[in-house]
Design a protein around this nucleic acid. Sequence first.
DNA 1: TTGACTTATATGTCTAGACATATAATCGTG
DNA 2: CACGATTATATGTCTAGACATATAAGTCAA
Lengths: 247, 247
Amino acid sequence: MNVASDRAKPGAAEKPTLYKRIRLDIETRILTGEWPPGHRIPFEHQLMARYRCSRMTVNKALSELAQADLIERRRRAGTFVRRPQHMSAVLKIADIRAEITALGRSYGYQLIDCRRRAATAADRARLGVSTAGKVIAIACRHSADDVPFAVEDRLIDLSTVPEAATADFAREPPGSWLLHHVPWTEAEHTISAVVADEHTAKALDIAVGAPCLVIDRYTWRSARTVTAVRLHYPGDTHRLVARFKGG
Amino acid sequence: MNVASDRAKPGAAEKPTLYKRIRLDIETRILTGEWPPGHRIPFEHQLMARYRCSRMTVNKALSELAQADLIERRRRAGTFVRRPQHMSAVLKIADIRAEITALGRSYGYQLIDCRRRAATAADRARLGVSTAGKVIAIACRHSADDVPFAVEDRLIDLSTVPEAATADFAREPPGSWLLHHVPWTEAEHTISAVVADEHTAKALDIAVGAPCLVIDRYTWRSARTVTAVRLHYPGDTHRLVARFKGG
DNA sequence: TTGACTTATATGTCTAGACATATAATCGTG
DNA sequence: CACGATTATATGTCTAGACATATAAGTCAA
């Protein structure tokens, strides 16, 4: 969660509580560079004196800043501004239907192929599972204002998500269905670039050899594979945007 | 911060503190689906009784889960499991030198071009600034084990980072220099795919028309633009990986 | 100089209260 | 029934203590 979110709240300038004021004071000093990375910030008892409050109040402010990785706390040594981390960005990859409608464009969906089968060796390799079981393989296309937006090639592990057998993927895109029916705990994205082969070019209505952005996503639910999906986007029109903050 | 991080710690099974146990218990129930989105979790006084502790201890556990957006707290109404959010991924985009050396490969760097100039109209548009000023324009290449890894085209706003004028970008890559010398507060990435033009193909030692992953990154420091950079990676060999968790 | 031991100290966790505040639920009235 | 006023209640914040624990720093002996 963004620690700075309180500041960003629109509307009235409500009187902030004391611990939030302390947290904001410290955060501001860090973000302006007044307290550079590695700087030791005042001890809790010093902040108690400065703000005339109890240690628990100071501690709450510092704990939240530590949870947000802005500071590092070391017993006996004190509390320190963290060095600039690796550049980590929050990449919002929404459900495609939500993404398109959020842009104010009309969402279209075409199911190309949907079949249920016993997992082949290739399926098991793709899902990263060793045991045999049933899977659903889906190919479909998403469009925005009737222009092809992305093609999707998905595998769902029915042993993890048996309910998926009853879902109607002709009506509802599998990504939306899964997002609303299956709590996921972890996922991994791999983003790469390819040039469109004949099959992809036809589905996206672009030229063979045109650039495509490819997203591979694996989703787990408590160590069990839920789904593996590969999405092809036209690379020249689609962009992933990641906004983030750091310290 | 990842709320589940304590669980992921390697090594000894240290006795967790009480509030962490409460937090983990609740988190587990949410992640396994036992408490689905919208479910009201027990009131603080109920948890006090269950764990035989004070309200502050329960409150600390719940506050951290709320900060991690796993639950939502409403006065008078109670505390509820949040609906599944958008899929937001933490995309780690490290400094390229660090990224390559972390892979155990030898890092190479070639400065192609570095010039200091008054900002042209194009420079100002790219940096998103309206006032004239000096900039540094840099072109360089990163390689791993002597194989081209990425080409970089960067603009640094000297009015925000005057120290950059004294940096030796022939010796140190500008990304590394900036990461270690300039605290950044915000940035934005745009990821897209293109096919290599002649110039890029030559620099990356790939064929014209081969796919490239492009990352555009804009970095700010308290509302002032620091730098704008465009990186081209060979799309077939380079991948961005984002691992994340959700609820 | 080095290594083992001791001590001081800052953070980590916790308690048993307190008052504030937003709001869901209830009640009463037109 | 609709709507405004009242009340009950769950969370939000805060206090002034306590003991636990990791560890930086100092001490002393080999």
